[in-house]
Amino acid sequence: MKTITVDEHDIRAAVPMSEAIDAVRSGFIDLAKGEFEMPTRTALRDGQFLVMSAHHRPTSSAMIKTLSLDFGRKPAIAGTVVWSETGRLDSLVADASTVTTLRTGAAVGVATDLLAPPEAGRLTLIGAGAQAPDQVRAVHAVRPLHRLTVVDTDTQRALGLTEMLASELPGVDLRTAEDAAAAVEEAEIVCCATNATSPLFPEPALPAQVHVNAIGAYRPTMRELPDELLATSTVVIDELDAILAESGEIIHALEAGVLTKDALTELGTALTGTSANHSRRTVFKTVGVAMQDWAVARLLTDKFLD
């Protein structure tokens, strides 16, 4: 019996974003089929400590992630992802920070591939924190970019992100901005990755056709999107129970009466649906579910365990 431990370098070398997107896409489809046992995550100290678990029935495999969140430190996420499987004595322990940013990006890649116009290539990213690089990588993997605008209240942090990504985005027009409302006016895709507690931009600032991903708000007290956007868009979510418990923007819109539960479609259901019809504005709202961590951990297991 042995335990393999993999760090950020190991994970990045082993799992390219395209593979993570494919794995998470398959995971969402299995989730829609009911093939996961996946309780809503445990949140302690108002989300500063999280415990997530998932069991995949067809493979008799399970993942447990424990992490702490502190936006005043680097990295903000710290913890472990542990993989185990019936009939296998060996186990794998992975860095939770890297798995979390990778799987969150992968989910955005899946949703963007499904919902964004095929020709979309202008991305506005709001928030230049730890989640930001994988948001860009995921969108670029499914919709090759020709313009990236990074919005952050810290101009140097925005510039640092564009400089870091420059070698990965040859030929892409890289810009920074401080005004989110102005920066989304010409966007075809918007990614929100902040810890905001109020909407980042007014709904009229968006163009008539746009796809918006919102990944930052994961507690009822947090919000990135205005009610008016949710009321007038096709809204796809990761998992209903998790969203109703944790998504501040969805909870707020439901309580305001501008959105109903029936208007929410889980991503796995959308992926397996026969109709691709949706409004000119689409939103993917995710709070993150354990299946995504399981999907990346399974890739790591395939690569590092005999």
Score class of each variant (00 low, 15 high):
A128K: 07
R45D: 14
G129F: 04
K261Y: 04
L31A: 14
G72T: 03
R147T: 15
V139I: 15
G109I: 14
T149S: 14
M222T: 13
S61T: 14
A187R: 00
K261A: 13
R103K: 14
K303E: 12
L123V: 10
L169N: 07
V110E: 08
L200W: 02
H55W: 14
G257Y: 04
E188A: 06
E239M: 06
T301W: 13
K285V: 10
R12G: 01
T282Y: 07
D238S: 06
V6A: 06
V99E: 08
T149V: 15
T153F: 10
T260W: 06
R298P: 01
A183K: 02
G129Y: 06
L159N: 15
H140E: 12
D7L: 11
N213M: 11
E119W: 06
V108P: 00
L206Y: 03
L264N: 04
A166F: 13
D46G: 01
T221L: 05
Q209C: 04
Q209Y: 00
L300Q: 02
T98C: 14
E239L: 07
L206D: 01
T155F: 11
E185N: 05
D70A: 12
M1T: 12
T265Y: 05
T101E: 07
F49G: 04
D293A: 13
A96R: 11
A138V: 09
L305H: 08
V150K: 01
E246Q: 13
T66M: 08
A187I: 03
G127L: 05
F36C: 09
V210Q: 00
K261G: 10
E35T: 06
D95V: 11
P202M: 06
